[in-house]
Every structure is written in C-alpha cells, then in structure tokens.
C-alpha cells in the first residue's frame, strides 16, 4: 500500500522532468534540422533567387543578396529558350539519356535474369566482376575510351559518342540491380507456369516480367539519371555546340569570353537540375541497395 503511494508520489515529478527533457530534445532536433536544411538547400535557394531577380538587382550593392528590390520575373527562363541553344542541348540530353536507357535495359534484363535464375557456371564470379567495374572511375578510362570511340567507332564529336560511353557505368549498376529484383521473384510462380504447360520463354514473358515491372522501371530511372550526372565524358568527347548535352553546354557555352550571364546561366542549371533531383530522390532507396550490393540485408 505504502509502496504504491510512494510510487505515485515519485512518478509525477519524474514524468514532468521527462516532459521538460522531451521538449528540449525536440527543440534541439528542430535546430539541427534547420541547420541541415540551410546547408543543403542554400545554394539552390540562392540560385533560384538570383535567376528570378532583375539583372540590375544582382549587382546593386544596396540590395540584400538574399532578397530582392525590383520585381521578380521569369525573363531569364524566356531568354534561355529564345536566345540560347538551351532547347537543342535539352533535346540532345533527352536523346542521349533515352538511348542509354534503352541499351541498358536491353542488356540488363536478360543478363540479370540469367545470373539470378539460370544455372550459369561461373555466374557469381561474372556478377561480381561486372559490379567491380563500377568501381573503376571514368577518370581511368576517358583517354583510351575517347580514342576508341573517335578512331574505331568513328563517333567523335557527336552525341552518339556519349550513347556508347555512358552504358559503361549504367550497365554494371543496373545489371546488379535487376539481378536483385529477379532473385526476389518467388521461384514457385515460375515453376507453376512451367507445370501448366508454358515453356521457359512464355513463363518469363507472362509471369516473371510482369511481376518485375517495378524493378525494370527503377533500373530505367537509374540509367537515365546516372547518365545525367556525367561530366568528364561529355567534356572530352563532344565539343561542337550543336551536339552537346546540358551538363557540358551550360557551363561552357553560356559563358562568352569572360562574361558570365548569371541570370540565364543559373536558370539553365536550375531547371534540369531540380527535375533530375526530384526524380532521383524517389528512387534513392534502391540506389543505396544497389551500392551496398544488398550487403546490409
């Protein structure tokens, strides 16, 4: 009896103290969150603000750099499309990324299936070998690869050079990813289809592939977004403006001599940058799984 009374008596102040501590923890949490948000997003906020500002606001020392004085507007975006080659570069980027996506899927869906499901002697070693090539950075390859693509494939200085080059890093990654997806499709449903009289190809086409659609979409998104993260191959292989992709054209072509047209430049960086960041973010969990090779599971 006295024990319960004591317990009740003790519990109250303890709970209140905990409440105070919780409040403090919560406050610290939001402080940390604010710090991280500012660190991560400030450059993007500043890009956005600078591109929406009137040109004169950018160089007027009386204007707060984080805010604006003259009205904001979308002129820089308009100029981007009307006075620069931005739409051509955007089209080139879309063509390159689209072709890379096609090649990557055409190679990785059958390859991933075979490595995950068929008895391929030495298959595990092949899979690891392919994944390891992802850890060879482009910087070791760009000189000979450029020679190869220019002299042997005869694609120098065209966007097709990039279509050939980018699968060197999308294939290893996406193959590994597809393999993981196919391994997670239950073997039983495929065998059920075989028992029901399908041959292997029909079982794959009507049972396995439809179940793997989310995996295929994920691999496709990565082929697309990874090919938009490249800089070195585009820098080395494509120099003519009409063939360039956004990543290289915006930093080089929009600067004429020593004059930086910051408004247009930042508009050109922000528009595709934010779109890619947005798509990428949706599929990030799979990216982590692909990198860690499922080791954390």
């Amino acid at each position: 009896m006295s024990a319960t009374v004591a317990a009740v008596g003790v519990e109250r102040p303890v709970r209140r103290r905990l409440g105070g501590r919780r409040l403090r923890n919560r406050a610290l949490l939001y402080l940390a969150l604010a710090f991280y948000l500012v660190v991560a997003c400030f450059p993007v906020y500043y890009m956005l603000m600078s591109t929406l500002k009137a040109d004169y606001d950018l160089i007027d020392p009386t204007v707060n750099p984080l805010w604006f004085k003259r009205p904001l507007g979308l002129e820089h975006f308009q100029q981007l499309f009307s006075q620069t080659g931005f739409s051509i570069w955007a089209a080139n980027t879309a063509v390159v990324a689209g072709c890379v996506l096609g090649i990557t899927l055409a190679v990785c869906i059958p390859g991933g299936y075979a490595l995950a499901r068929l008895r391929v002697p030495g298959g595990q070693h092949m899979a690891i070998g392919i994944f390891l090539t992802y850890l060879i950075p482009p910087i070791l390859l760009f000189i000979p690869l450029n020679q190869l693509i220019t002299n042997v494939f005869n694609l120098g200085n065209t966007r097709w050079a990039l279509v050939v080059a980018y699968p060197t890093f999308t294939i290893p990654f996406c193959l590994w990813l597809m393999m993981g997806f196919f391994k997670r499709v239950p073997r039983e449903i495929e065998e059920a289809a075989l028992v029901d009289g399908c041959n292997r190809w029909q079982a794959v086409r009507h049972v396995v592939l439809p179940v793997s659609v989310p995996g295929i979409i994920t691999a496709g998104v990565f082929a697309f977004t990874l090919s938009m993260q490249d800089f070195i191959y585009a820098l080395v292989m494509v120099s003519s403006s009409a063939q360039q992709v956004i990543n290289i054209a915006v930093p080089t072509e929009l600067i004429r001599g020593d004059v930086y047209f910051w408004g247009e430049l930042l508009a050109a960086a922000l528009l595709p940058g934010v779109i890619i960041a947005f798509i990428y973010n949706f599929f990030l969990d799979y990216f982590v799984q692909g990198i860690t090779g499922g080791i954390g599971r």
Partner: peptide, 30 residues
Amino acid sequence: IRGFLLIPFTMPLPLALLGWKWMYDPQFSV
C-alpha cells in the same frame, strides 16, 4: 524533408557547381 536534405547529392553536380561558382564570385560573393 529528406528530399530537400538530399538535393546536394541528387542534383547533377555540373549544374549545382554553377550555383557555387556564383556564390564564390570575386565581386558579388554572397
């Protein structure tokens, strides 16, 4: 929130770098 926090990693680097170049501008560095 996670989407915003991951922007530095998900945004194509060459494009984000233009923002940094402007932030480091010799005359108007923010």
